[in-house]
Design a protein around this nucleic acid. Structure first.
Lengths: 245, 245
DNA sequence: AAGTGGTCTAGACCACACC
DNA sequence: GTGTGGTCTAGACCACTTC
């Protein structure tokens, strides 16, 4: 049964391609951005739009569901779908392995383990990980170089109870960053970004003046209810984290 | 080799709920995180999984499509689906209106427009916006206060050709940030985050010492091929941008 | 109680990439 | 050519929320 799925005005007819939901989404976005549908306004029901576009309700649902995910629409059962009043744009940041991040910028990668010891963490770290203060953790410090320039200083605490294998890994040659990404999938975590004036240790390691503005990433990851690792990355001045919207 | 999880007939219960694709996704994630499916390994085809789970192929597709979006799987037509070798975790950052950001932290919001003029931008701004250097733009400087403390300094260039209405807006009382979010949906853009030592102007406006580490957000937005605005936000020391993974 | 979105199904066709 | 994922359909049932 061939479906003549071509009715919205005079679309130059990609009826041969299966881009229907994306075209519908583009049209809905147009109606919002051109203020044909105003912020806060109730938009037609899925069934009505399906009739208008001559497609199945599932196709409309796909288009609108993704718009709701990206913050453009608010949808509630029974209450219907409304144009978001404050369209919260969501930016998606990739959190890559540092080596790949550096190499993708066309630079050479080198890694140096500065220290590795098993010890009890300071209270602030224990609290973040929700572990007893006397719990012994693996404490690592390392530098990642880009074209032989210090690029990022890594200060990491790992909970061996969550990933015991890490105690046997040769961390001189493979960074904990990379090993953990490949071997310890986490189920949840959080990340924060901030700026911070370099303290002496950071300045010395990164080869910059004390007080230089460093871009700081702090990340905490969990496997179920077990904390895996807490890491603080200090990026050399000049670093920018970039993404498209 | 089939696994006969004897679930096809005797689904314990959740047949009453419609959580099927999410449950399937959770099971697939379990197989990856417990290394039943190894990184780089080809996983069964959609049809095979549909048979195994006793569901339609579309349900498997929904589960796996979202896993591919979040970087856990790599999918290619004909080549099949593989477990990602370097699971690039993606963090989703909300980019809210500054006022709402401050208020959601439980603080009071105040806004002060420092300057507003129509002028030609410096070359670096014109280049970023891909406009001729002599194009006249609206240049705004403003501060957003949180509990009467300077929170972020906003330095913005707006292209009136893209949003002529902004010339008539009372920007003393409503920030360009908020007006643009509500009135000038963009179709694409990019954003970058970095750290930067406060120069004198920033230090004075934010009430901090020169050289303090500031968290910088630079954002550029487009409506189709027309540049809308380029903005640089300098956050007071102590600011952290946070998200869950 | 009723209306709306969320999800599922069984089948179909197609685009794309590998052969 | 051929196999895999990407998408679409028409219909169905259900969950959630508001009435």
């Amino acid at each position: 049964m061939n479906v003549s799925r071509n009715n919205i005005a005079s679309q130059p007819d990609n009826s041969s391609t299966s881009m229907s939901w994306q075209k519908i989404q583009a049209e809905l976005i147009r109606r919002i951005s051109e203020r044909i549908w105003l912020p806060g306004e109730l938009v037609p029901r899925e069934i009505e739009l399906a009739e208008e576009f001559g497609c199945a309700r599932a196709t409309i649902n796909r288009a609108m569901r993704e718009m709701a995910n990206s913050g453009l629409l608010n949808r509630r059962r029974k209450a219907g779908t409304r144009v978001a009043i404050n369209p919260v744009r969501k930016a998606t940041l990739d959190i890559p392995v540092i080596r790949l991040d550096i190499e993708s910028r066309g630079a050479s990668y080198r890694y140096l383990l500065l220290s590795k010891e098993i010890t009890t963490p300071p209270p602030v770290i224990a609290n973040r990980l929700m572990l007893a203060i006397k719990t012994e953790l693996l404490h690592l410090k390392a530098v990642h170089f880009s074209d032989d320039q210090p690029f990022v200083f890594e200060d990491r605490w790992v909970n061996p109870a969550a990933v015991p294998e890490i105690l046997d890994v040769d961390l001189e040659n493979k960074s904990a960053n990379e090993w953990l990404v490949q071997n310890a999938l986490f189920t949840s975590g959080d990340i924060s970004f901030s700026a911070h004036n370099a303290i002496e240790e950071e300045a010395e390691i990164l080869g910059v003046a004390a007080g230089a503005a460093l871009f700081i990433v702090e990340r905490l990851t969990w496997l179920g209810t077990a904390p895996i690792t807490s890491v603080r990355l200090s990026y050399s001045p000049g670093f920018k984290m970039h993404t498209d919207l």
